[in-house]
Amino acid sequence: MSTPTLTLRSVTLGAGRPAVCVPVVERTPADAARVTAALPAGAADVVELRLDHLTGSATDPDVAVRAVAGVRAALPHGTPLLATFRTVREGGVQPADEDAYATLVRAVLAGGQADAVDVELAAAHRADLVRRAHDAGAAVVLSHHDFAATPPRARLLALLREQAAAGADLCKIAVMPHDVDDVLALLGATADFARAADRPAATMAMGGLGVVTRLAGEVVGSALTFGSVGSASAPGQVDATALHGVLALVHGALVADAPPPSDPV
C-alpha cells in the first residue's frame, strides 16, 4: 500500500521526512507579515498563522483576512500557508463562540490566500467549514488538542479515524503527557492509524516529555511537526533550525536501514 500524501504548493506531506511548520503568533497583521518576511531561509516548510493571537480578530474577521494576505505576500511562492484560529477550549488565546469562529474561518476562505485551514474536530459548524474549504480549493487540517491529559491509545486512534471520516486532508492531534506511558500511547496510536490510513496525520505530545514525538514522527507515520523561530505556540516546541537537523538525521538512518528494492519479475 502506498503512503498517503498531501501536497501543498511545493511541499508534500507524508513522503519521507516530516515537514516543519513554523507558527507566527503576532498581534497585528503588519507584525505578522514582518516576522514572516524575516524567517531564516529554510526554517519553515510550512507557515502557520495563528489568527487567535491577532488582537480583535474574533470580532472583526477582516483583521484575520488582512493578516493572511500580508503573510502570504511575505512568503516564498512555494511555502504553504496554514491559517488557524485556535479556540480557548483547545489552547487558544482569544475567546470566540461557535458562530464567531465559523464566521472568521469562512472569511479567511473567501479571501482565497490560505493554502489550508485548521478546523477543530469539536467545532459546531465543522461539516460546513470542511465543505467550504474544499469548495475553495483549500486543504483542511482537522484537529484535536488536549492541554490537560493524554487519552488512551484506543481513543486517540478513534479520534484520528473520526477526523479522516469527517473529511480531513491532514488529521492532527496534540496532547499533554504526564508520563512515558502517555507518550507511548500517542506514538502507538499514530502508528496504528498510519498502517491503514488513506491520508496523512500529524501528531505530537507537548511539553518536555513529548519532545521525542516532535523528533521521531517519521518512525510512526507523522507527516508534520512544529518548530519555533522566536515565540512558540505550544509547550515543547523546539528551534526550527535544530529540528530540521534532527529530522534529517532520523530520515537518513531510516533510509540506510530500508531493504533494497526488489528486482522486477
Rank of each mutant, 00 (worst) to 15 (best):
112 G>P: 05
143 S>N: 04
142 L>T: 03
134 H>F: 04
129 L>Q: 11
124 A>Q: 12
133 A>Q: 04
147 F>M: 13
121 L>G: 02
113 Q>I: 03
137 G>C: 13
121 L>E: 06
121 L>Y: 06
122 A>M: 14
121 L>D: 09
123 A>V: 01
139 A>F: 00
110 A>G: 04
136 A>S: 15
122 A>V: 14
136 A>C: 11
110 A>I: 06
133 A>V: 06
121 L>V: 03
137 G>E: 14
127 A>V: 05
145 H>L: 15
142 L>N: 01
139 A>W: 00
113 Q>E: 15
135 D>R: 15
117 V>D: 00
121 L>S: 07
139 A>K: 11
141 V>F: 15
119 V>Y: 01
121 L>I: 04
125 H>N: 11
126 R>T: 01
135 D>V: 13
133 A>E: 02
141 V>S: 10
120 E>P: 00
137 G>S: 14
131 R>C: 09
138 A>K: 10
127 A>Q: 12
137 G>N: 13
142 L>R: 02
147 F>W: 11
147 F>R: 11
124 A>P: 00
145 H>E: 14
145 H>C: 12
136 A>W: 08
126 R>Q: 07
118 D>E: 09
131 R>H: 15
133 A>W: 03
126 R>P: 01
131 R>P: 02
129 L>Y: 06
111 G>V: 06
145 H>F: 12
147 F>N: 12
117 V>N: 01
122 A>W: 03
127 A>S: 14
